[in-house]
Simulated assay, not measured.
Amino acid sequence: MAKGKDEWLFAINFVKHPTMLGSVIPSSRWLIRSLLAPVDWERARYFVEYGPGVGTITRHILKRMHPEAKLLVLEINDDFVRHLNSAIDDPRLVVRRDSAASLGTVLDELDWPHIDYAVSGIPFSIMSSEDVEAVLKETRARLPPQGEFLVYQFSRHSAQYLHRSFDDVSREFVLRNVPPVSCYRARSNGGIGPSEAPAPM
């Protein structure tokens, strides 16, 4: 029943805000498997998810992460924020109605020292370049050397932003999703990001 309610709410919001979601149905299990495959669940203690929607990926992170870990989700859609607060009962989850560009401010308020993994499906392709760069700058600044930014995108052009901001970016294409999607794993070697982007993957 919960899954049906999730899909119904997701579909309603797709009709209202189609460019913000990119798909009429939530992420498939194959997308989630590929996206979260790099996570070291035993080590990681601080997670953040941008644009969790109805919480499809959120629930998978909560199910797998360490009992002492914490998950912050940043969502700007009021319907989704209310749904997440009412549908998921887990003391490790922090739901905030904030944009991903506000990450640093929110982490300072929560007194989190860093984030081990950032997970995101917000569509870079419909955002301004300035907004995308702000999100990536905030994310990179809060990731330690072993931290990673795990991203799924429907537009391959989005990869150029990741290549400009991170030193090491890999891609896996997931066909079994509607629509098919690219999952990226972005890591930094420390210091300032590359000044020039290599060809998008």
Rank of each mutant, 00 (worst) to 15 (best):
K3C: 06
G4D: 03
E7V: 15
W8G: 09
L9I: 11
F10I: 12
K16P: 01
H17V: 10
L21R: 04
S23G: 07
S23F: 04
V24L: 10
V24D: 14
P26Y: 09
P26M: 06
P26A: 10
S27G: 00
S28A: 05
S28P: 04
R29D: 09
L31C: 02
S34D: 01
L36C: 13
L36P: 02
L36I: 10
A37V: 02
V39H: 00
E42N: 07
R43K: 06
R45F: 06
Y46F: 13
F47K: 00
G53A: 13
G53E: 11
V54T: 15
G55H: 11
I57A: 05
I57L: 07
R59Y: 06
R59C: 06
H60W: 12
K63C: 10
E75T: 04
D78E: 15
D79Q: 08
N85T: 14
S86D: 15
D89N: 15
R92P: 06
L93G: 05
L93Q: 01
D98G: 10
L103Q: 08
V106K: 00
L107E: 03
W112M: 07
Y117H: 10
V119H: 03
V119Q: 05
V119C: 10
S120H: 05
G121D: 09
P123N: 09
S129N: 12
D131M: 15
D131R: 15
V135W: 04
Q146V: 13
Q146C: 12
E148T: 14
E148A: 15
E148W: 08
L150R: 09
V151G: 05
V151H: 14
H157E: 10
S158A: 15
Q160A: 10
Y161G: 01
F166I: 09
D168Y: 12
S170A: 06
S170T: 15
F173R: 06
F173S: 01
R176F: 11
R176N: 03
V178P: 03
P179H: 08
P180T: 00
V181A: 15
R185N: 09
R185Y: 12
S188T: 13
N189D: 09
G193L: 02
G193R: 10
E196M: 08
P198I: 01
P198R: 03
M201R: 01
